[in-house]
Design a protein around this nucleic acid. Structure first.
Lengths: 146, 146
DNA sequence: ATTTGATAGTTGTCATAATACCTGTTAAAA
DNA sequence: TTTTAACAGGTATTATGACAACTATCAAAT
């Protein structure tokens, strides 16, 4: 006989809650980015590249920093290239690698988006006290660093 | 000038943490389901149908209960139909509606999966005390019910 | 009886993602 | 050297997702 304990149910509820909340947050940010014709993933890659502070990044560096691991980062970068938000060239030291930079256009776009995204993020978590955000952050981090 | 406060950073970190944790959880459960040739979405639909306890569900009922809203639930059900895990027929009272049931096959599969998924879920949150799980659950729920 | 609007689901199209396999490049072993 | 293995990306295929247009049905108003 299968017994479903209170713990089982609370565990499942918490997992579902986490997934739903993450989806909801991503949907809201996606809504904002849509007006700028950027997908959430594209936006994240741009921010990763800006974080390199001038240093070029190769594909595996980008993937390491991405929130959601994805297989075809190549094509994601292709899209950003078409929009001239990033540039790409083959690394001369190691011709297997490619070097990817954010362009001036890309930096300008991010600068325009910064306050908007920041405000969206604040609004998304506006129901929490600073203390609650800290607690939530600490608890969430425990999941993957176990 | 753009000033990034401590609050801004904590908010962003928490959001990223939530998304990463949700992705991680889903990836682990997807890994388990892969051995049974089920996607996470298909599995969720099966559980929703079992939750109906014999009553048929129509498409909008399924969508209402789904963790991630998706547009083409029709095609998701098609896949389950092919595997004979669900059955579908037109509702006679209101011929616009379809009635979707879980089959014996579907129930058997879920029963086989129940303890495995439950153990996976327990393991995923095994680093928390029961108190912490409660806190996490409560905090996460606040995001969407604001 | 006919039209209108709302409801329930389906289909077509295109963008994105997952998976597995392929190609070119490098480095190290034989 | 030649071969081999490991590495960094690219490509092809298939699955999944978003969005809009479409079909069928029902119910209510004319």
């Amino acid at each position: 006989m299968l017994i479903s304990t209170k713990d089982d149910r609370t565990t499942r509820d918490t997992i579902i809650s986490c997934i739903k909340s993450a989806n909801w947050i991503q949907d809201r940010i996606t809504d904002v980015l849509k007006e700028y014709d950027l997908s959430l993933q594209q936006f994240n890659v741009l921010r990763i590249l800006r974080g390199q502070k001038g240093k070029p990044a190769n594909l595996s560096t980008i993937q390491k920093h991405m929130i959601a691991k994805m297989s075809n980062t190549t094509r994601l970068v292709d899209k950003l290239l078409l929009k001239k938000l990033v540039a790409r060239n083959i690394c001369q030291q190691n011709r297997r690698k490619v070097e990817i930079f954010i362009t001036g256009n890309g930096l300008d776009l991010l600068q325009e988006l910064d306050p908007i995204i920041c405000a969206t993020e604040q609004k998304l978590l506006s129901m929490y006290t600073p203390q609650e955000i800290e607690t939530l952050n600490t608890l969430l981090n425990k999941i993957r660093t176990h």
